[in-house]
Simulated assay, not measured.
Amino acid sequence: MHYETMHPKLEKVIENIELVMVGKRDVAVLSLVALLADGHVLFEDVPGVGKTMMVRALAQSVGADFKRIQFTPDLLPSDVTGVSIYNPKTLEFEYREGPIMGNIVLADEINRTSPKTQSSLLEGMEEGNVTVDGRTREIPKPFFVMATQNPIEHEGTYPLPEAQLDRFLFKLKMGYPTVTEELEILSLAERDRPINRISAVITKEECISMQKEIQNVYADETVKRYIVEIVSKTRRHPSIYLGASPRGSISLLKAAQAYAFVHGRDYIVPDDIQYLAPFTLPHRMILRSEAKFEGNTAADVLNSIVNSTPVPVQRTMSRQ
Rank of each mutant, 00 (worst) to 15 (best):
L169H: 08
G128H: 08
D74R: 11
L169N: 04
E181C: 10
K141C: 02
L76I: 02
T113P: 11
I110A: 06
T117V: 07
T117G: 11
V179I: 15
E153H: 13
V179L: 11
L91Y: 10
Q164V: 09
I85F: 15
E138T: 13
V105S: 01
I69M: 00
I100N: 06
P151Q: 07
E182P: 12
G175Y: 12
V179H: 14
P140G: 00
T72A: 07
N111W: 09
L91W: 00
S119V: 06
D133T: 05
K171C: 03
L186T: 07
I185R: 14
P159W: 04
G175E: 10
R167G: 07
P73R: 13
L122N: 08
E182D: 13
R137T: 03
I139S: 05
F71I: 04
V179S: 06
R68M: 10
N150K: 07
D133H: 06
F168N: 00
L75Y: 08
Q118D: 04
T136I: 00
L186Q: 09
E184Q: 15
E97Q: 08
L169E: 01
K171H: 12
K89E: 15
P161E: 12
P151Y: 09
R96E: 13
E184A: 13
G156V: 01
Q70A: 07
K141I: 01
E138K: 06
T81K: 03
V179G: 03
M125Y: 07
Q70Y: 08
E181P: 12
D79N: 00
D74V: 04
T157F: 10
R96P: 01
E109P: 11
R96C: 01
F170K: 02
F71N: 01
P140F: 02
D133M: 08
E184Y: 13
T113I: 03
S114W: 01
S119C: 03
E94S: 07
E94L: 04
P161Q: 15
R167I: 01
L165Q: 12
E138L: 14
D108K: 13
S84D: 07
E126S: 12
E97P: 03
F144A: 05
P140L: 01
I69P: 02
E181H: 15
V105M: 02
M146K: 00
L122Y: 04
F170Q: 01
K171I: 05
I110L: 15
N111Q: 10
G175H: 10
E92R: 15
L169A: 00
E184K: 15
S84A: 11
F144H: 12
S84F: 14
F168I: 02
E127Q: 06
V179T: 11
L169S: 07
I139E: 01
A107W: 00
I69E: 12
L169P: 05
G124H: 09
V145S: 15
D79F: 00
P151M: 02
Y95D: 01
E94W: 06
G102E: 10
Q149M: 04
Y176Q: 11
M125G: 04
G98N: 09
E127F: 11
V179C: 05
Q118A: 06
T157C: 05
V80L: 08
G128R: 00
E155Q: 15
L121K: 09
L91H: 14
E97Y: 10
E182Q: 15
P161R: 15
L165T: 00
I104T: 05
I69S: 08
K171G: 02
G102L: 03
V132H: 08
S119R: 14
P159T: 06
